[in-house]
Simulated scan of single mutants.
Amino acid sequence: MSQRARPYRSVLYIPASNTRAMEKAKTLPIDAIIFDLEDAVAPAEKENARGLLAEALATGDYGKRMRIVRINDLNTEWGPSDAAAVKDMKCDAVLLPKVESAAQVQALADITGDLPIWAMMETPRGMLNAHEIALHPMLKGMVMGTNDLAKELQTRFRPDRLPMQAGLGLCLLAAKAEDVVIVDGVYNAFKDAEGLQVECDQGRDMGFDGKTLIHPAQVAVANAAFAPSEAEIDLARRQIEAFAQAEADGSGVAVVDGKIVENLHVATAQEIIAKADAIAELEA
């Protein structure tokens, strides 16, 4: 399954210093894992965590889950060593924090070669340069860093995330324009399933491919929110069938549930079916 075609409903952060958590991740119904060498690892543990992660990826069976490694910023004392090490790790992509320009992506690519790069989008300058960043040929994914963005904006947390909408929207537009994966930021209250549901529904409606998570308790909500529902799959199939029948009959007009079905509706329906099939393949 190609990187862009696969599901990204649930993307769980795992501290690279926590061997127990890395082992447990093998059993969780998640689509992707971000093995974190940055925020989740204390400075004194960073070098040790890098070795633990390399061993875990080399010996561990993570199945069909995508393996992403978040390194430290290249301007830190650990970043260059992280980048050099991740190039030889058994992973699918490297995630660079606080990306604000395509030059930063290139600096990482100069070290990691042909390893796909994902970008943490978490600063105002990053939002303003989102399209430039998405245009880089090695950039395959974006991850919203909403906690850092809120700090930079000096805003308050609100259920509707209204103060962040401009930044989220700029990154979404850039990602969709260049066919780059984009996943929403974390929901901090991991015991608040109702609040998580609201934010997942909002993210799905905005067009995010999935949600980054900080706790296994959040996985089920995210998986359901970012997957096509049975009703959506049923409607998609009926739209495809009705349009094909209309073309065969030469009528040129297809109607489903009292609504006209056009080419654009069929294209969306086909995407829904493809996503459902990809999820089924991942879970098989």
Score class of each variant (00 low, 15 high):
residue 9 R to Y: 05
residue 13 Y to L: 14
residue 23 E to G: 06
residue 23 E to H: 06
residue 37 L to S: 09
residue 42 A to V: 11
residue 44 A to G: 00
residue 45 E to P: 00
residue 49 A to E: 03
residue 50 R to M: 07
residue 64 K to T: 11
residue 65 R to M: 14
residue 69 V to R: 02
residue 72 N to R: 03
residue 74 L to M: 08
residue 74 L to Y: 01
residue 76 T to W: 04
residue 90 K to E: 13
residue 91 C to D: 08
residue 91 C to V: 08
residue 94 V to W: 03
residue 101 S to T: 11
residue 103 A to R: 00
residue 108 L to V: 02
residue 111 I to K: 09
residue 116 P to N: 04
residue 118 W to T: 10
residue 121 M to K: 07
residue 126 G to S: 00
residue 135 L to C: 14
residue 138 M to V: 13
residue 139 L to Y: 01
residue 141 G to V: 03
residue 141 G to A: 10
residue 147 N to Q: 11
residue 147 N to H: 11
residue 150 A to K: 02
residue 159 P to L: 02
residue 165 Q to S: 12
residue 165 Q to C: 12
residue 168 L to G: 13
residue 171 C to S: 11
residue 176 K to D: 14
residue 179 D to N: 14
residue 192 D to C: 05
residue 192 D to G: 08
residue 194 E to R: 03
residue 196 L to F: 01
residue 198 V to S: 15
residue 203 G to P: 00
residue 204 R to T: 10
residue 205 D to K: 10
residue 216 P to K: 03
residue 216 P to H: 04
residue 217 A to L: 04
residue 223 N to F: 01
residue 226 F to G: 15
residue 228 P to S: 02
residue 230 E to M: 01
residue 236 A to M: 06
residue 242 A to E: 06
residue 242 A to N: 01
residue 242 A to G: 11
residue 242 A to H: 03
residue 242 A to D: 11
residue 245 Q to F: 11
residue 246 A to Y: 05
residue 248 A to Y: 01
residue 248 A to E: 00
residue 249 D to Y: 10
residue 257 D to I: 04
residue 263 N to R: 15
residue 265 H to G: 15
residue 265 H to E: 12
residue 266 V to E: 07
residue 268 T to S: 15
residue 277 D to M: 06
residue 278 A to S: 03
